[in-house]
């Protein structure tokens, strides 16, 4: 029996959300003048920065591919981003694994064949971690890639879901994540309804899995709607501004 009441009798979670509710999202594009694309993304208390450089010259000789661009992803958590200070090992195992996972997600989505012999760098920095950092970074990276004008097949969105005390929950925060239940981060291409990334740990029965998966998909769709709406406004202003300058 868990000490913390994750779901109140009224069906509310520790932070007052309903099980299927995603946290409040806020983002800004084009913060950095020197990066080709950048985004600052907030989902509840999780705050991440993403910067995209490229397509540019491949840094590692011999790594370049003759028919497409190579994608280089680096995920890093600031030492002060978590409750307990993280040791500043830049290449710790968890960061490397997440970098690889995110890179593979974007390799399939970016139209890399348009830029052979080049490299596209995606750097993600977590400033504050409150659960769902992997997913927040994917969303931030998607926005930064859009800001950089790098062509993609679709707008990748990501959300995690889990199950605590038999109730499926979307977008777990740190407290819920540490409860020991299953954690399922998911990234989809919303317009094509295709899965890019799917991970799951801990145990689930098939029925529970279906439920949690459905929650994650719904969560992704919620996030996509929020990101899309603001993006259209922002682009409208930018495209209008460009027209008046010409």
């Amino acid at each position: 029996m868990s000490k913390i009441e994750f779901i109140s009798p009224e069906g509310l979670r520790v932070d007052g959300r309903r099980p299927q509710e995603v946290r409040k999202i806020n983002y800004r594009l084009n913060l950095f003048s020197r990066a080709d694309g950048s985004a600052y993304y907030e989902q509840g208390n999780t705050r991440v920065l993403a910067a995209v450089y490229g397509p540019r010259q491949v840094t590692r000789r011999g790594a370049s591919k003759h028919d497409r661009a190579i994608i280089n992803c680096e995920y890093s958590m600031a030492t002060f981003s978590t409750g307990e200070r993280r040791k500043s090992a830049k290449r710790d195992r968890r960061s490397t694994e997440i970098s690889v996972v995110i890179r593979q997600t974007f390799e399939s989505v970016i139209l890399t064949h348009l830029y052979p012999r080049t490299q596209i760098d995606i750097f993600m920095q977590v400033l504050q971690a409150d659960g769902g950092t992997r997913c927040a970074c994917i969303n931030a990276a998607s926005l930064a890639l859009i800001d950089a004008g790098i062509p993609m097949r679709d707008f990748v969105v990501s959300c995690a879901a889990g199950m605590i005390d038999g109730v499926a929950l979307t977008d777990l925060n740190y407290i819920e994540d540490s409860a020991g239940g299953p954690d399922l981060p998911l990234a989809i291409l919303p317009k094509q309804n295709k899965i890019c990334l799917l991970q799951m740990d801990s145990k689930l029965t098939i029925e529970q899995y279906e439920e949690v998966m459905q929650m994650a998909v719904e969560g992704c769709k919620q996030i996509h709607a929020v990101l899309d709406a603001k993006l259209k406004d922002v682009t409208d202003q930018l495209v209008n501004k460009r027209k008046t300058l010409l």
Binding site: F32, R34, A35, S38, L49, A50, A51, Y53, R56, T59, E74, S76, S88, K90, R91, D121, F123, M124, Q125
Partner: peptide, 14 residues
């Protein structure tokens, strides 16, 4: 103090 690769196009690796 850290200058991560995201801060500048001249810094491509840690």
């Amino acid at each position: 103090v850290e200058l991560p690769p995201l801060c500048s196009p001249n810094i491509q690796r840690w």
